[in-house]
Amino acid sequence: MTTLPTSTTKKLGLVIDLDTCVGCHACVISCKGWNTENYGAPLSDTDAYGGDPSGTFLNRVHSFEVQPPVLKDQPAPEAQLIHFPKSCLHCEDAPCVTVCPTGASYKRVEDGIVLVNESDCIGCGLCAWACPYGAREMDAVEKVMKKCTLCVDRIYNENLPEEDREPACVRTCPAGARHFGDFADPDSNVSKLTAERGGMDLMPEQGTKPVNKYLPPRPKDTLSEGAGDIDILAPYLEPVAQEAKGFLGWLDKTLEKL
C-alpha cells in the first residue's frame, strides 16, 4: 500500500559523519557488491569497459568544496573539501512512496525502512522524480526501481555472524564515518550521536522528514589566532640567510640588471 504509516515502531537509519568521511568510496563498492549478489535484481553496469560507462548505485559519494567567508583583518580562510556519501534517507514523510501507482513502494511499519517490491514495479520512474535526494535509480537492464534497502537482508539475517548484521556500507567503512541504529530509541548510538554533534536533515524545506542524519564537520583549527604567531618559538625560527649567495646570488643580481 502506498499510503505512509502514521508511525513506525522502530526508525532504523544511518548517521553519516561528514567530519570523519575520507571519501574512499569503500561504502559505494560494498553496497554495490552486496546488493548485486543478494536481495532483488542485480545492480547492472552498462558499457562497463567501454567509452561511456554507466551503472546503478544505491550509494554515491560526492565531494563538495566549501569556502568560508573572508572576515576582515583575518587572512583568507582555507577552502574545505567535504566528502559526502548520499543514499536513501528513509524519510518519515517519504514522497516517493505516496506517488507510486502500483503499491510497489512502501514504508515498513515495523522499522520504517522504505522498500520497493520489484515484482509490482512498472518502472514508471515517478518515485525517482519525487525524491529530492536522487536516492532512487532505475536499473537500465532490469527496468525496475532500485534503492537502498538498509540491507534488510543483513540486519535481520541470523545466518550471518552478529557483527555483520548491519548495512554493508556501515560494516565496511574504514573511517567509522557511518553508524546504524534506531532513531526511535533516545538511548541508541545514533540518537546520542545526533544529539551530541548536531545531526542535521538534508533539504529540511522539502518536508520529507529524513530519518538519516548527517553530522556536520567540526570547526577547523585556526592557526592564525592569538598573536598571529604559529608558536612562541617562531621568532627564533626566522630564516637566517635572506639573500642568495654564490652562483644563484650572481644569477639573481645579473637577471635583476637586465
Binding site: 568510496h25 561511456d52 548505485f57 554515491r60 560526492h62 548520499k86 525517482a128 535509480e137
Partner: peptide
C-alpha cells in the same frame, strides 16, 4: 561521484 554519467 563517478566519472561517467548515470540515471540521475
Amino acid at each position: 561521484p563517478h566519472t561517467g554519467t548515470n540515471y540521475l
